[in-house]
């Protein structure tokens, strides 16, 4: 009993430490979908508060899996993850985390307006069987204005273009006033002009909301510009520092593993 109590005590001080300077702590995490085949191998990574971290790596390198672990959609096979000193599940339900999923086809006939989709972002704050507070509803409309599509509020979500829909999902993520914003492949399917605009938008959001931002992408260029830190992930964590420290050798190591001759053709096999 005494031992148990002691363990418990250790656990909580450790969590407090985590809480102090880091938004996310990934601690010696391994994950496998099939026993024996590790998709993530011994990942340790700390994301300091208010940094913008880009996670890059080849397809199949475990980026999405790491994201799902941080969002609490999967549980690590080994190791621990804490988000603001809590378990990922607790952090998400407490609406500390905003999530912008990878773009996918929204049912064109889905009977929801843009404003209704954005208000989905506050269900976690509101809780079951209750009406949203006026404060939360204000936050939702403010988020809609922040991403610059307030004029589309009453349009059916299916009427919007892909880029516009993505702004809606960004607004939904911001509506719950999160402290961590997670974006999965936000640049996929957007042209260069759109990408530049989106980077600008992310810049202003980062300043306004004082957020920690986590962006996952397979496209290195899309990430380097708007991030303070870059992490290269291909089953293991190959690099985690400011983008200026990235060398060709690191990239070759990360990308060649799976995509010899595709990601960096001039590096050779």
């Amino acid at each position: 009993m005494a031992e148990d109590h002691c363990c418990h005590h250790d656990h909580s001080t450790e969590l407090e430490q985590h809480h102090a300077g880091d938004a996310v702590c990934v601690d010696q995490v391994c994950f496998s979908y099939v026993p024996g085949v590790r998709v993530l191998d011994n990942i340790t990574m700390h994301i300091p508060l208010r940094t913008r971290l880009g996670i890059v790596g080849p397809n199949g390198g475990g980026k999405s899996t790491l994201l799902k672990l941080i969002l609490g959609l999967l549980k690590p096979s080994e190791g621990r993850i804490s988000v603001f000193g809590r378990t990922p599940g607790e952090a998400c339900c407490g609406s500390m985390v905003g999530y912008v999923p990878q773009r996918h086809e929204v049912g064109i006939n889905f009977p929801l307006s843009v404003a209704q989709v954005v208000r989905q972002g506050i269900v976690g704050r509101t809780g079951m069987f209750r009406r949203a507070s006026s404060d939360d509803r204000d936050a939702a409309s403010q988020a809609l204005e922040q991403v610059g599509i307030a004029d589309l509020a009453n349009r059916p979500i299916g009427d919007l273009s892909g880029g516009q829909q993505q702004r809606v999902f960004l607004a939904r993520a911001l509506a719950g006033r999160p402290r961590l914003l997670v974006l999965d492949e936000p640049m996929v399917g957007i042209d260069e002009v759109g990408q530049a605009k989106f980077a600008q938008l992310m810049d202003s959001i980062h300043r306004t909301y004082e957020l920690t931002v986590l962006i996952v992408s397979h496209d290195l260029r899309a990430i380097v510009a708007g991030c303070d830190q870059v992490a290269c992930l291909n089953r293991r964590l190959h690099f985690h520092a400011a983008p200026s420290g990235l060398t060709r050798e690191v990239l070759a190591e990360v990308f060649n593993h799976n995509l010899a001759g595709v990601a960096l053709r001039d590096e050779g096999p």
């Binding site: 999530y99 208000r119 269900v123 509101t126």
Partner: peptide, 19 residues
């Protein structure tokens, strides 16, 4: 509101705290 979100996108609704 939970059921409509659930139908709209189950995974995302889970991240946003829908049971």
């Amino acid at each position: 509101k939970e059921i409509v979100f659930f139908a709209f996108d189950e995974t995302v609704s889970r991240v946003f705290g829908v049971r």
